[in-house]
Amino acid sequence: MSYQVNGTTVEHDEEGYITTLSDWSKDLAEVIAKQEDINMNEEHWEVVNFLRDYYEEYQIAPAVRVLIKAVKKTMGPEKGNNKYMYELFPYGPAKQACKIAGLPKPTGCV
């Protein structure tokens, strides 16, 4: 299973998470998003970039409530809430946004 981006092949797993994290690119993010029926706009990118920065800094994808709290702090309460996040990523920011951002699949532990 793979995505096709600019003539290269990027492997992904059953659920669409990329196998090798270093394969990620902005163009790839657009391709993954399309597969998820999401048209990436500025607001989507804001969250995806935030997730990538968070991962870079802390080496984990934040839990949804932590993401929302952090977004609230940096981007304001009109964006740092559940409703906004689920409007952008209907199947959940943890699942969809992390997939588009090229982060590891959440192990779904709770």
Binding site: Y54, E57, Y58, Q59, I60, P62, A63, V66, K69, A70
Partner: peptide, 14 residues
């Protein structure tokens, strides 16, 4: 091996 030490610094958010 993955360096997980930065994750300790995220625990405040949790």
């Amino acid at each position: 091996v993955k360096n997980f030490s930065p994750t300790f610094r995220a625990l405040g958010d949790y």
